[in-house]
Amino acid sequence: MDYKRITLLSGHYGSGKTNVAVNMAMELKKEYERVTVADLDIVNPYFRTLDSKADFDHAGIRLIVSEYANTNLDVPALPQEIYTIVDDTLAHVVIDVGGDERGALALGRISDRIREENDYEMLLVINRFRPLTRTPEDVLVVMREIEAAGGIPFTGIVNDSNLGAETDAETVRSSLGFAQEVSKLTGLPVVMTAVEEELYEELKDEIPDLFPMKLQKRPV
């Protein structure tokens, strides 16, 4: 995928935004010197980009995250350095927006600057196996709510349909039609289908724009 300076990932919570964000940053780092991940999740205190801190440090990727992420303090706090996202225009940034419209509210702080600079992709991450986004119509509702709250219109779709550890090639195949339906309904292109790297070889010849991902580790 051709990356814009800012890539925003949003969608229904639990769709896999954080895993996509982490992997996009790693991919960007292969091409660009300055890469930043901005974790603007104000909803979920668990399973954050911070879980990949060691990998980011190793790769030389800057992480902007609330100092309270992964702690016992569950407050909807934004990171102090949030303006770096729009001020440091030499860096490529991946923004992990929190889930649903409540999470997207956090974007309000910088959405005018992002629109003004106009060098961004706002990607809708979808997973057809999440119970509240099983139909394209459900996805459309979530999408409109996020746009209204965050103030940035979507430009594309990331199909991240998965069943966690039980995901196999058939799981991914069975989601392609769904992604196309969402695309038709929303008028947005499917810019990539994200899969765990083990499935990449098997699927790369049949699915266009397939994106291999290393998944964040879970505690148990």
């Binding site: 639990g14 999440r130 069943l163 799981t171 069975s174």
Partner: peptide, 9 residues
């Protein structure tokens, strides 16, 4: 497979 969904506990 198709009848499964991915959910939080």
């Amino acid at each position: 497979m198709a009848d499964k969904v991915l959910m939080k506990g």
